[in-house]
């Protein structure tokens, strides 16, 4: 029962952070939102008893992808559409 409630809460936050990552005009904020989504996705994998995938998701999705996006934003512009 408690697992179901945790799963529903985590999935709702994943959907809302994914929506924020699409809608934000500030690209750095969008990248941070995407990183939070990856972190919660790894928590979801851990709840579903797949710790291998959870470690890979936390390392690549939340760590390396955020660093690559931050480097790319530093090379270009921060605000969308300007």
């Amino acid at each position: 029962m408690i697992e179901d409630i945790a799963q529903i809460v985590v999935l709702l936050i994943i959907i809302s952070t994914g929506y924020l990552a699409i809608k934000m005009k500030d690209l750095l904020g969008a990248v941070i939102s995407l990183s939070i989504m990856s972190l919660l996705l790894s928590l979801e994998f851990y709840i579903l008893q797949a710790p291998d995938v959870a470690i890979a998701e936390a390392g690549i999705g939340a760590g390396l992808t955020t660093a690559i996006f931050v480097l790319a934003i530093r090379g270009t512009k921060r605000m969308e559409g300007s």
Binding site: I55, A56, G59, I60, G63, L64, A67, I68
Partner: peptide
Amino acid sequence: AVVASAFAL
């Protein structure tokens, strides 16, 4: 991937 994320940090 975890070690590489430390280097990226």
